[in-house]
Amino acid sequence: MVSVGPSGELCEKISEISGQNPFLCMQCGTCSASCTGIGVMDLLPRQVVRMVQLGRREALACRSIWVCSSCLACTTRCPRGIDIARLMEALRAINLRRGHEVLSPERIPAALLTEVPQMAVTCAFRKLSA
């Protein structure tokens, strides 16, 4: 698991990278209800935000941040005006900047790689590899 020092530091770092105030979240769950990747997430987006508020490192180590498709449905609907997709990106960025990545070229089936539009390849590597 990636370590970022005491719990307050994690929250501060995430606020700095995302430009968002996670403490505005009132845990309504609109983000979770709108989420594209929810079916394969370990923590609901609402729970990820709660972990960030609490400075818990589960937020950095969960699968949810890596299966987010940055579709911005949560961002568009958050009644507290939090750009939740930016919080997710900050959690990925902290991991990636320490060399922790989830996508490597050899993991992608060759049959898929020759078919998929290259925008998917560029985008996926920018989001998921260090």
Binding site: T36, V67, S70, L112, V116, A124
Partner: peptide, 20 residues
């Protein structure tokens, strides 16, 4: 009409793209 198809997750979390 404004739901996400799963996007670039086709390369990482294929189940998201299949189910969506």
């Amino acid at each position: 009409k404004t739901a996400c198809c799963g996007s670039y997750q086709v390369l990482n979390a294929y189940d998201v793209v299949a189910s969506r």
